[in-house]
């Protein structure tokens, strides 16, 4: 286990070097005085290296850092989708949450949220092992992609994750917008759902982009 402060350093390094593809990382946003100890911890565990231009991730550091980012963004998703918190406090609370979602807790939350692909601000959530597995009976799900719902399940549309403008236009045309109630009627051979008093048939491409807060 590494300290919370160390995790935050990993997170910042990962976002800057891996996600934004910057050459070196600027750690000035983190308070320098109390990060010394954490930096030493990371250097000792060989998770980061110090180069001429600053720090970079090394060895298992990248995987560990990716994991922190994943937990942070999952936490943001949970706060918005499940607890319905919409304001700026989402990011701050997520900063605390990310440190407690260890060892399988993140997978349970990821499953509960329907394996979201982006955080509420639109940045991608690095996928975990659970995202590749098939859904099991008994999985707790609060939010799920329409494609993962069981026939007959319904709920309010939580958010749309359209892969293209065209798809977004199609959703808007169907009245598939956050807040509207949606019910999945059938999932084979195509997905049949009801919004308002209309029924639509869509393929998996579209059904995977609509996320629903499932009514139990």
């Amino acid at each position: 286990m590494i300290s919370e402060k160390a995790e935050e350093i990993l997170e910042a390094l990962w976002i800057q070097t891996v996600e934004n593809k910057e050459k070196t990382a600027d750690l000035s946003s983190l308070c320098a005085s109390d990060s010394d100890e954490a930096l030493k911890e990371l250097l000792d565990k060989k998770l980061i290296k110090q180069g001429k231009n600053g720090f970079r991730l090394a060895g298992d550091g990248e995987a560990a850092a990716r994991d922190v980012v994943r937990r942070h963004r999952l936490a943001e998703r949970m706060l918005t989708d499940v607890l319905n918190i919409q304001d700026a406090s989402v990011h701050e609370s997520a900063c605390k949450f990310e440190h407690v979602l260890h060892k399988g807790v993140d997978e349970a939350i990821c499953t509960m949220l329907g394996h979201p692909k982006t955080c509420p601000h639109g940045t991608p959530i690095p996928p975990g092992k659970c995202c590749l597995k098939k859904a099991k009976v008994g999985d707790v799900r609060v939010v799920g992609a329409l494609a993962e719902l069981r026939a007959g399940e319904k709920g309010k549309i939580a958010y749309i994750q359209a892969s293209s403008r065209e798809n977004l236009n199609k959703m808007m045309a169907m009245g598939v917008l956050p807040g509207n109630t949606i019910q999945l009627l059938q999932n084979f051979p195509s997905y049949l759902f009801k919004v308002g008093n209309s029924q639509f048939a869509v393929d998996a491409l579209i059904a995977r982009e609509i996320f629903v807060r499932i009514e139990q």
């Binding site: 065209e166 798809n167 199609k170 045309a173 169907m174 195509s190 049949l192 209309s198 029924q199 639509f200 048939a201 869509v202 393929d203 491409l205 579209i206």
Partner: peptide, 9 residues
């Protein structure tokens, strides 16, 4: 691109 299917029933 592969087509995307949606139709009102």
């Amino acid at each position: 691109e592969a087509p995307v299917f949606f139709i009102e029933v």
